[in-house]
């Protein structure tokens, strides 16, 4: 049952990712990004990361994407105009080279990662909130505090940038 689930949600993630890149309207891109995040949350569950799957949905698909949609709505962003002078060589070679790059990367990963390394649902049970919290508040306490300072600075920065009289 693992393989069909993985293939289904990986296909959803890749399709939504492609849609994000090709859509010209930002709202379509934002909805595609929410699709990617939902599919990735399911894959996190398959990998045994229960807490992160929930956090992915709440923080990413909930909070961050609402912020994006809010800004799109606030700025009344429409479809984007064509770029003025895009080199024709880059436009012709871009997608084939991207495909080639992905092929090489996939080949290298297949070669380097032994096929004995497999993922089965339930093979890792240490991803619950309790285990995560214990590791976070013992071994990673200093990075945790640094992250709190980072978030504080981000709040201050957003408030300063959002003031009315800035120019």
């Amino acid at each position: 049952m693992d393989v069909p689930l993985f293939l289904l949600f990986a296909a959803i993630a890749v399709a939504c990712g492609v849609n994000l890149v090709v859509q010209t309207h930002p709202v379509s891109s934002a909805l595609s990004l929410i699709g990617v995040m939902g599919a990735l949350a399911v894959l996190y569950l398959l990998l045994g990361a229960e807490f992160l799957a929930a956090a992915q949905l709440v923080v990413y698909a909930g909070a961050i994407m609402v912020l994006f949609i809010f800004v799109i709505m606030l700025l009344n962003a429409g479809g984007e105009k064509k770029s003025r002078n895009r080199p024709r060589l880059a436009a012709a070679l871009g997608i084939p080279l991207l495909m080639l790059f992905l092929g090489i990367i996939s080949f290298l990963i297949q070669r380097r990662v032994p096929s004995s390394m497999t993922v089965t649902f339930g093979g890792f049970t240490g991803g619950g909130p309790g285990d995560l919290g214990r590791t976070l508040f013992t071994g990673y306490l200093l990075p945790f505090e640094a992250a709190s300072v980072l978030v504080l600075i981000a709040i201050l920065g957003a408030v300063v940038l959002g003031r009315k009289e800035i120019d």
């Binding site: 393989v3 990712g17 890149v21 894959l43 990367i105 497999t118 993922v119």
Partner: peptide
Amino acid sequence: NAVPLSWYLILSAILFSLGVAGFLF
């Protein structure tokens, strides 16, 4: 019943490349 680990890594590489492509295009 088991998904190879490399499939997850390849999916990760594909999504990252899509992100780079969107960033550039």
